[in-house]
């Protein structure tokens, strides 16, 4: 079935240990200029609870990395930011996710507009079965009535920002699926930024892509943060250390620790964080 599997925690004893020793997690002070403030977020797959009392601040124009062992809730967490979990009948979120002063989980929020503001890149490159041009223009045509020339201009801008323009400018009519994995992923990034979002969510964007393309995409992320706020889920700790400004460490649905990347990786406050960073488990 296609429904996301509920998080299965490993190790009975560890589980209990985790629940009783986790203190309040936020080590960075709350900033009123946060792009996103998450307050008391709990998430359920049917009866199973997957996220527990998540509190988080996402800084604007910074890269926030979300790390943690498999199945700890990383993807689940960011999928709340664009309410994509609502596709699935039995998935539920409670709490507040405040973006620009508005709780996006509240009823009455216009979801299509939310999704224009929040772009998402998936682990599998998902080039639509249409030309490269149509791929990038897809979101534009969805949300706006634009003249053809304007669309062409926005497409070019997006492809340039995604560092793909030079490679595809002569073959905009080629199907998107004809590109290599790394190029497709950058196409997806171009597609997402074409509608000028404010937040970019990336769910393990380089996991299915070769090392050379990975480097290119990481360089891209570094450039993009000037214009966008980026949250990136990754199981690759080195990647998180390389490209992010802030890091949140998740464990079994809890946010164990959150703070500037350098601090998390060199001098973490929590023992569990240190254990994960040093590879004691994972």
């Amino acid at each position: 079935m296609n429904e996301k599997q509920p998080i299965v925690s490993e190790g009975g004893e560890n589980q209990i240990e985790a629940r009783t020793t986790l203190p309040s997690k936020i080590t960075a002070t709350a900033d009123s200029r946060s792009k996103i403030s998450v307050r008391n977020l709990n998430f359920f797959y049917g009866d199973k609870q997957a996220l527990f009392d998540n509190d988080l601040e996402i800084r604007p124009n910074k890269v926030t990395a979300i790390i943690g062992p498999s199945g700890c809730g990383k993807s689940t967490h960011i999928r709340v930011y664009n309410r994509i979990f609502e596709l699935y009948r039995d998935q539920k979120a409670t709490g507040e996710v405040v973006m620009d002063g508005e709780n996006i989980l509240a009823p009455g929020v216009e979801v299509t507009e939310l999704r224009r503001k929040v772009g998402m890149i998936f682990q599998q490159p998902t080039a639509f079965p249409m030309s490269i041009f149509d791929n990038v223009a897809y979101g534009l045509r969805l949300h706006y009535k634009m003249k053809k020339s304007r669309i062409a201009e926005r497409v070019r801008k997006a492809l340039e920002s995604a560092a793909l323009w030079d490679q595809v400018k002569d073959q905009l009519n080629k199907p998107g699926t004809a590109l290599s994995g790394g190029q497709q992923q950058r196409l997806c990034i171009a597609r997402a930024i074409a509608v000028e979002p404010e937040l970019l969510l990336m769910d393990e964007p380089t996991a299915a892509v070769d090392p050379v393309a990975t480097t290119r995409i990481e360089e891209l992320v570094d450039t993009l943060k000037q214009d966008y706020t980026i949250v990136i889920v990754t199981h690759n700790m080195q990647q998180a250390a390389r490209i992010s400004d802030y890091t949140a460490f998740f464990y079994e649905g809890y946010i164990v620790e959150y703070g500037p990347t350098r601090k998390i990786f060199t001098n973490p406050s929590e023992k569990r964080t240190e254990e994960y960073i040093t590879g004691r488990f994972g």
Binding site: I84, R115, G119, F128, C188, R191
Partner: peptide, 8 residues
């Protein structure tokens, strides 16, 4: 999900 994430 990609299409829906774009707001379709």
């Amino acid at each position: 999900e990609s299409a829906l994430a774009l707001g379709a």
